[in-house]
Design a protein around this nucleic acid. Structure first.
Length: 934
RNA sequence: GGUCGCUUAGCUCAGUUGGUUAGAGCGCCUGCUUCACACGCAGGAGGUCGUAGGUUCGAGUCCUACAGCGACCACCA
């Protein structure tokens, strides 16, 4: 018996209990069942696994939930992500793997701090008034109240995660691991602290990393400013200027030089000269630097090392001073002289006015350029000299590149590996310090005496350098992505070597959107490879890079857009709330929508019309169940019981052999597609199987066999019913990863609420048994279907009333006849015939007949047919056949084609040509007869 | 500025290494209260695969150019 049909337990013997659990409501109502099962899965801890279970030999399938921000609300992107992960996790679990899906939330430094600050603001207070400690306590309080929202939503969606492992990135154990990681990197010389140009958000008042800056094209201005040249005697030479161009004139307050390209002929006479910085009055040198391009602006660039990364580099090369002219809030500081206290944009305006007044303002040009904004609050970022902590990224990046290059990590779709390499190869050191309060505080202590820094795992009693006891902890916290980058191993107990770590690391798969490819995925790869390389393997041997990676595969999914392909955003007001949609259509329908649209590489335009269709699908499943249960109950009354544990019902019936063959073919395809993350294909295949094969054909045919009358062959009825129930049960398992709720409900009902396992999720996924895939039966059935469809079409053309039965004749080859004969009642029933006769000579008129490549069928029905319309139809057919024939013959007469094309193609084309020729002849004959008729 | 992707039926999308007559869902048209389902059943219409070249016996599929759309990366003031 194939797994596809294997029931692990007896179908309950209580089926004669009059219909109790089998009594399903007429229409499927997801709200009536989903909450119940969602709660059941959680309370029964069905998806809990531990490392001890690994000894059973099951292969671990570990997957880490990309932790949503603790402040987050579930959106469609989450739901897509979670649906994909859940399908895969459920599938692996049902395939017998040790499937572990670990959930958690991210403390999300800036986002959470902003949220609580807003709250404080509405209460008329602020974090500064509260003080650091009280503020942090307040954030924790916020988290206790609201932090679980997104995971509660996730529970409602039925995600089969191990809730006993739920983590929060600020948990004690994870915080300890973060500290450990920081200290180790520091010991290894991979963390340094220093004053460099960083991206500063004046609103958040913290440094942010390059990645947190989003560039936006903006229409701005390029101002030219004339800097007076100082002559021999220390005085400006009248009429002598060096004109620079800038987009940020306010930074001129901090200028320390003007740079020109050494090759630039226009300025060679100024090399070594000094300039008078307007408004500030100090003398600044003209320096030469090959970085300056002569063809941009005026070819002369003001040098402000404290406010621009390029200028900073120039400053370093030329030993220039750096003058910071702005404070943390983007206001001019005392270095800005009379502009002190002004907001940067107010200062800009004032400065331009003053320059203009002095006649030093040159041409002003429109200039489109990319402006960096804070990813979080969209404030224009100020590049600014600031003392921060950095990770020396190159050594980590090298290893992370190697891991992907050597195939230790596989990307799906593969093109994302390119994007990854592109970024990794152009990476800059990572600024990991943030001037926030909410986050992992950097484990470094400043000495009040010698000013040196002590980095330590525990609060040190004294300075490691001078022994001074007046030490205070660094106030900065770490970038949130630093801690989340460690998660693949810290959630399993790192830095300890735990059984969990031995069992579940590396995780198998990461499922995520490309938007956090660099933020998170790349960082996990770098940090995972770096830290886990030092962790011995479970058997104690040394770990190689291939086993140090945080995951073996990365599946990058699409972005969910609205039905008009617009990005969903709060400001556009086009955000589709998954929970609302779920309440409207049911979780299963929404999940199925997402899965069926999740084809790799393209964004998903989420459309409710589609979800409506999948709710109809769920309703279809529901009603198939009602039909089956109704018959099981009728059978019980007739003393017929089905036993899912009995050997496979061997039936000679065409439809039985066919549906079992189809089930196995489909199981094979679905398993293959899920293995390739083709959720769309997998969903399409099960949908088509259930609706198309199972309901439209098999159920209709099986109705013929469900004869419960006294005179009936009980064994045959029993066999038919058994195949029906067993196939349905297997189909439920096949569908279960996609639609966990409805399949759970119906699966329990199939077993009369005495199922062999606590959940369908713990049953086995159907696996194909090749011996049961019978292609001859499948082809035969396809032929039979074609006969039925042709007859139905004919009925329609002849306008046979729906209720009326018609007599049919058929002409077919011996093989097809042998297929149909024993089961011709199938045709009779489905095509609503009073009888089907195998004809030797064809007597029916062409208007009453249809010919295909393998058979001719006709209806013995009198109707005044429209000869003209019929002739037109045949004429159209004829044209089509002739075109096809011509094309086929052209190819078959082509010597090059015959010589080069594979035999299979040539043979196929020959067969097609002869079939088409036959059809053409039949059509010609029919037209001829029609002429006589007229 | 660099990189990558997309363009197939009215709409949303499939189409595996080039191979015989390009598919699905929704929508549309026609008929049907057929005792599981009108969230249904049955039948049907609808596509010169963005444009122009090229490679090939053969191109929706590979190459080039162009057009349109989109995304990501970026320290030219």
């Amino acid at each position: 018996m194939p797994d596809g049909l294997a029931g692990d337990a007896v179908l309950s013997s209580n089926l004669d209990t009059p219909g109790m659990p089998h009594e399903l409501q007429k229409a499927y109502d997801p709200t009536a069942i989903e909450d119940r099962w969602a709660a059941y899965w959680v309370s029964e801890r069905l998806f809990h696994v531990d490392s001890a279970s690994a000894t059973s030999g099951a292969k671990p399938f570990t997957i880490l939930l990309p932790p949503p921000n603790v402040t987050g609300r579930l959106h469609m992107g989450h739901m897509l992500n979670q649906t994909e992960m859940d399908i895969l996790t459920r599938w692996h679990r049902m395939c017998g793997d040790l499937a572990l899906w670990v959930p958690g939330t991210d403390h999300a430094g800036i986002a959470t701090q902003m949220m609580v600050e807003r709250q404080l603001d509405s209460e008329g207070t602020s974090r500064q008034q509260l003080g650091r400690e009280a503020f942090i306590e307040r954030v924790w309080e916020w988290r206790r109240h609201y932090g679980g929202a997104i995971l509660d939503q996730m529970k409602r969606l039925g995600a089969s995660v191990d809730w006993s492992r739920e983590y929060f990135t600020m948990d004690e154990n994870l915080s300890r691991a973060v500290k450990e990681a920081f200290v180790r990197l520091h010991e290894q010389g991979l963390i340094y602290r220093g004053a460099y140009i960083v991206n500063w958000c004046p609103r958040c008042q913290t440094a942010i990393s390059d990645l947190e800056v989003v560039h936006e094209e903006q229409q701005g201005k390029l101002w030219e400013i004339r800097y007076p040249v100082i002559g021999e005697h220390g005085k400006p030479e009248p009429g002598q200027f060096l004109t620079i161009a800038t987009t940020r004139p306010e930074t001129m307050l901090g200028d320390v030089a003007v740079a020109v390209n050494p090759e630039d002929e226009r300025y060679k006479h100024l090399h070594g000269k000094k300039l008078r910085l307007p408004l500030m009055g100090r003398e600044i040198p003209v320096v030469t630097d090959s970085w300056v391009s002569s063809d941009f602006g005026t070819g002369a660039v003001k040098v402000t090392p404290a406010h621009d990364p390029n200028d900073f580099a120039i400053g370093q090369r030329h030993g220039l001073e750096s003058i910071s002219v702005m404070d943390d809030t983007g206001h001019i500081n005392p270095e800005g002289g009379k502009y002190e206290g002004l907001d940067r944009y107010v200062a800009r305006k004032r400065i331009l006015e003053d320059l203009d007044a002095q006649g030093l303002l040159g041409t002003v040009r429109e200039h489109t350029h990319a402006v960096g904004k804070c990813d979080r609050c969209k404030t224009v970022v100020e590049p600014r000299l600031s003392t921060q902590w950095f990770i020396k990224i190159q050594p980590l990046a090298d290893q992370a590149i190697a891991a992907v290059e050597h195939g230790h990590i596989k990307f799906t779709p593969a093109q994302y590996a390119k994007t990854y390499f592109e970024w990794m190869r152009n990476i800059h050191d990572w600024c990991i310090s943030r001037q926030l309060w909410w986050g992992h505080r950097i484990p470094a202590w400043h000495c009040g005496k010698c000013r040196q820094i002590t980095v330590a795992r525990e609060t040190p009693a004294q300075c490691a350098h001078c022994g001074g006891e007046n030490i205070t902890q660094e106030t900065d916290v770490l970038d949130t992505w630093f801690s989340s980058g460690l998660l693949p191993f810290t959630v399993f107990g790192w830095p300890e070597r735990t059984p969990d770590l031995d069992t579940f690391y590396p995780t198998q798969l990461l499922v995520t959107g490309f938007d956090i490819l660099f933020f998170w995925v790349a960082r996990m790869i770098m940090l995972g490879c770096h830290f886990m390389l030092d962790m011995p393997m479970p058997d104690g041997s040394e770990r190689a890079l291939k086993d140090a990676v945080p995951f073996r595969e990365v599946y990058i999914h699409a972005l969910v857009r609205d039905a008009d392909r617009q990005k969903m955003s709060k400001t556009k007001g086009n955000v589709i709330d998954p929970i609302e949609t779920v309440q409207k259509y049911g979780t299963d329908a929404v999940r199925f929508t997402l899965a069926s649209m999740a084809s790799p590489g393209t964004d998903i335009a989420f459309s409710e019309a589609r979800t409506e269709g999948y709710r109809a699908f769920a309703n279809k499943i529901w009603n198939a169940a009602r039909f089956i249960f109704m018959n099981v109950d009728r059978a019980a009354e007739a003393g017929i019981k089905v036993d899912l544990n009995a050997p496979a019902p061997t039936s000679d019936r065409l439809e039985a052999r066919w549906i079992i063959s189809r089930l196995n073919s489909v199981a094979r395809e679905v398993n293959a597609m899920l293995g390739e993350y083709r959720f769309d294909e997998a969903a399409r295949i099960v949908y088509q199987f259930f609706w198309g094969d199972f309901c439209d054909w098999y159920l209709e045919i099986v109705k013929l066999r469900l004869d419960f009358s006294e005179s009936a062959d009980k064994a045959a009825t029993r066999a038919a019913l058994q195949t029906l129930v067993a196939t349905f049960e297997a189909a439920l398992r096949l569908l279960s990863p996609f639609m966990p709720f409805i399949t759970e409900e119906l699966w329990h009902a199939v077993y009369d609420d005495k199922p062999p396992a606590k959940s369908i999720a713990l049953s086995r996924y159907p696996q194909a048994d090749d011996r049961l895939i019978d292609s001859e039966t499948e082809i035969g059935m396809a032929q039979l279907q074609e006969i039925v469809v042709t007859l139905r079409a004919l009925r329609k053309d002849l306008e046979v009333p729906e209720r009326e039965l018609a007599h049919a004749e058929i002409k077919a080859n011996a093989w097809l006849q042998s297929i149909i004969s024993p089961d011709h009642e199938i045709v009779t029933k489905l095509a609503r015939l009073s009888g089907l006769e195998f004809a030797t000579a064809w007597k029916l008129s062409p208007a009453n007949s249809r010919t295909t490549a393998s058979f001719t069928v006709g209806l013995d029905y009198e109707k005044q047919i429209d000869v003209a319309a019929e002739r037109e139809r045949l004429q159209k057919k004829l044209e089509q056949y002739e075109k096809q024939l011509a094309s086929a013959e052209r190819q078959l007469n082509n010597k090059a084609f015959l010589a080069k094309a594979p035999e299979k193609i040539v043979a196929g084309l020959k067969r097609q040509a002869s079939e088409t020729a036959l059809l053409r002849q039949e059509t010609l004959d029919a037209l001829e007869k029609l002429k006589q008729l007229a």
